[in-house]
Design a protein around this nucleic acid. Structure first.
Lengths: 194, 194
DNA sequence: AAAACAATCTTGACACTGTAAATATAGGAT
DNA sequence: ATCCTATATTTACAGTGTCAAGATTGTTTT
C-alpha cells in the first residue's frame, strides 16, 4: 500500500500534503489543481497520474484532515468515555478544531461527498459524527434518559455544536467573548447533570 | 431609483433575477457570470456595465434573497411578537427557508460579505440575525430571564437553529424524520415555558 | 545485457472562466 | 443636426480543469 518514489519522488503523498497546506492558505474557493502542482514543482497535468480529477484529490485530502479531526476528538475524551462530561468536552473539541483551522469547515462540509444518516447507523457515516453519536449514547444511558429519545437528543446536541462551528468559522461572523463558557452554559440543559 | 429600459431592456434587474434562478438550479459552485449573461441573451461582458465584478452581482443577489428571507421570518411571527412561542416559530421558519431552497445556505453564508457582531448590535448586522436577536430578547424578557444572560441564551438558540439548517442543507446529510417535532423538543429547554 | 513493458511525468491543446480595453450603438440634451 | 453619456459588443489575455499524445525511467522478461 505504501508507494515508493518513482523517477520524481512520491508525488501522490506530496500532492495530498501540499494540497492541505494550500487549503489552509487560500481556502477552498481559491484552491486549484495547478497551484498544487506548481507548489510540488511538477507539471500541471502530473496530478492526473494519481487522481481521477480535482474532486478525487480533494476527497482524499478530506480523508486525511478527517483523520486529524478524529484524533483530536478522541484525545479530548480519552479515559472518560463513560463520564457524561465527555459529551461536553467532545463538543468543545469539535468547535476548537474548526477555530484552529478556519478553512476546514467549508473544506470538509462543502466539497461534496460527505454522507451522514441521522436516523440509523450506517457504515459510511462520517466518522466524526459516528464518534459523536457513540459518545452521546453512552452519556445518555449514564444519565438515565429514555432510550426512545436518544436520537432526538443526539440531533439537538450535534446541531448546536455544528452550528457554533459554522457561525464562528464563516464569513464575517465574530464574537469577542469566551466561547467555551458560553457553550458550556447553553449546551448543558437544565436538569441534565453533565 | 427604478431603471427604465435602455436600448436593450432593463438588464440590471434581469441579471439579478436570472442570477438567482441560476443559483437555485446549479448552486454557488457552478454559478458563472457568463452563464447569467447567456441566459439574458446578452454578451458575456455586458454585466460589467452594471456590476463591478462577479462578487458585486452576487452581493446584490444576496441582498434580494435576504429580503425574501426576512419576509418569511416576519410572517412566521406576525401578531405574536410578545409571545415567547415566537422564538420557536422563528427558528422553524429559519430552517424551513433553507429546506425550501437547498442552495441558499451556501449562497448566503459562503460568498463573503456577511457581517455579524454577536456581542453588540451594530447597524450592519445581517438583518435576519438582527430580527432573531430582537425577537429573542423580547421573549427572554417575557420569560423573566436575567438580563445579563440574554446574550448567552441568544447565541445558544441561534447556534442550534443555524446548525440544523447547516446540517440539513449541506452535502449528503439526511434525516427522514419530522424535523419540526425534533426541533421543537430540543430547542425548548426544560424549565423554559415557550 | 538487451529488449519489452508499464508507471509516471511533460507538452500541447481545448473549452470554459473572470476581467479589462477598445469599439460600437443609440437615447437624451444642446 | 451634433454632441454626450450610458449601455452593449468585440477582442484579448490569464487562469482554470481536463484530455491526448509523447517522453522518461524504473522494472520485468528474455
Amino acid at each position: 500500500m505504501k508507494e515508493k518514489p518513482y523517477h520524481h519522488g512520491n508525488l501522490r503523498n506530496k500532492l495530498i500534503e501540499t494540497g492541505i497546506e494550500l487549503i489552509n492558505e487560500v481556502g477552498l474557493r481559491d484552491f486549484s489543481l495547478r497551484k498544487v502542482a506548481a507548489k510540488c514543482n511538477v507539471s500541471h497535468a502530473a496530478p492526473y497520474s494519481h487522481f481521477k480529477d480535482k474532486d478525487d484529490l480533494i476527497s482524499v485530502m478530506r480523508d486525511h484532515v478527517t483523520q486529524q479531526f478524529i484524533e483530536k476528538l478522541h484525545n479530548a475524551i480519552v479515559g472518560l468515555e463513560d463520564n457524561p462530561t465527555a459529551l461536553l468536552l467532545l463538543g468543545q473539541a469539535y468547535i476548537d478544531f474548526f477555530i484552529e483551522h478556519p478553512q476546514y469547515f467549508q473544506f470538509i462540509f462543502y466539497s461534496s461527498g460527505i454522507s451522514i444518516d441521522l436516523d440509523k447507523e450506517s457504515p459510511d457515516d462520517y466518522p466524526p459524527f459516528a464518534l459523536f453519536r457513540e459518545t452521546a449514547y453512552r452519556c445518555f444511558r449514564r444519565m438515565g434518559l429514555k432510550e426512545e429519545a436518544y436520537s432526538m437528543h443526539l440531533i439537538g446536541k450535534w446541531s448546536m455544536v455544528h452550528g457554533v462551528a459554522a457561525l464562528l468559522t464563516n464569513s464575517g461572523i465574530s464574537y469577542s467573548g469566551n466561547w467555551h463558557s458560553v457553550f458550556a452554559n447553553t449546551f448543558v440543559q437544565k436538569g441534565e447533570n453533565l
